[in-house]
């Protein structure tokens, strides 16, 4: 079987398209590369969606944390504290346990014992449950970054906006928000990289793999188990992640350049990956 055939059979295996059975004997390097790469689809899915949704929640949380009214500030502070103060590994595990426990009792009353798991089954699937945890997690970390940036917005910028007669929403949209984003961007890039790395924990803790559809690490451990040799599949995962990280840095670099495009070229911070390690 040529490598091209393998790609056809297993390229989308992680999302359930292609050959149903995983390779069971005579493992080739090509199979390992293809299947682990196929699993990477899940890592990208988790990373991109969690980052996208988390961004909005993070901005809201950052604003709530900066609010004077304790009614807003306190819940936001607690949320950030709980998610930043505990390991993601444990969050995944607890989330899975809670998701399997809570909805079922509700459903028992509603439907009865016959079709007891139909309507909540999807919450314990990794694609929903783990995504939810990652979303809350990255929102908490990003909120901390944005909160810090919000406090560093130059006073002069706000005063200038007020002099132009901007208030409330307009001022936020045109001055505060873009400046905050610009200041937070290097740290936010770092958070994105950490988040993508964190997606490897999904199938490793808590959430079960469904029909052998898993992420890159899931297939790597499958091969490590079948070939009894950990020295090939895990470095392949590492290789893919180095590529992914480089792509992320390049992508975020482009956005960062756009955010800074109004600044004089000399004063523009050359976009260098300088992690602030806010995770």
């Amino acid at each position: 079987m040529s490598c091209w055939d393998t790609l056809m059979d297993y390229g989308l295996r992680s999302v359930g398209i292609g050959e149903r059975l995983l390779p069971r004997s005579d493992f080739t390097l090509c199979q390992q590369f293809v299947l682990i790469g196929s699993g990477l689809i899940w890592n990208i899915y988790f990373g991109v969606l969690a980052l996208f949704c988390g961004f909005f929640l993070a901005v809201a949380l950052a604003l709530a944390r900066a609010a004077r009214a304790p009614l807003w500030r306190k819940p936001a502070e607690w949320f950030v504290f709980v998610f930043r103060g505990s390991p993601l590994f444990i969050q995944f595990f607890l989330a899975y346990e809670v998701l399997t426990l809570l909805p079922r009792s509700g459903i028992d009353i509603a439907i009865g014992p016959v079709s007891f798991n139909i309507h909540t089954a999807w919450t314990t699937r990794a694609w929903a449950g783990a995504l939810f945890v990652l979303f809350l997690n990255t929102a908490a970390y990003s909120a901390e970054i944005f909160h810090g940036a919000l406090r560093s917005v130059p006073k002069g910028d706000i005063e200038a906006a007020e002099a132009y007669g901007m208030t409330g929403w307009t001022r936020f949209r045109r001055i505060t928000f873009p400046t905050m984003l610009r200041l937070a961007w290097p740290a936010y890039t770092n958070e994105a990289i950490f988040l993508f790395h964190a997606t490897t924990l999904v199938f490793f803790s808590g959430f079960p793999a469904w029909q052998q559809r898993g992420d890159a690490l899931y297939y790597a451990s499958y091969f490590a188990d079948k070939t009894f040799n950990p020295f090939i599949p895990y470095p392949i995962v590492a290789f893919y992640f180095v590529l992914l990280t480089l792509l992320l840095i390049a992508g975020f670099g482009l956005v960062g350049r756009r955010l800074n495009r109004h600044l004089p070229a000399a004063g523009r911070p050359a976009f260098r990956f300088r992690p602030q390690l806010l995770r």
């Binding site: 059975l21 995983l22 069971r24 490793f204 803790s205 079960p208 793999a209 469904w210 029909q211 052998q212």
Partner: peptide, 14 residues
């Protein structure tokens, strides 16, 4: 391995 080949949906735990 048996479940994966049997046609049922396999759910794997550590």
């Amino acid at each position: 391995g048996h479940v994966a080949e049997s046609g049922a949906t396999l759910l794997e735990f550590a």
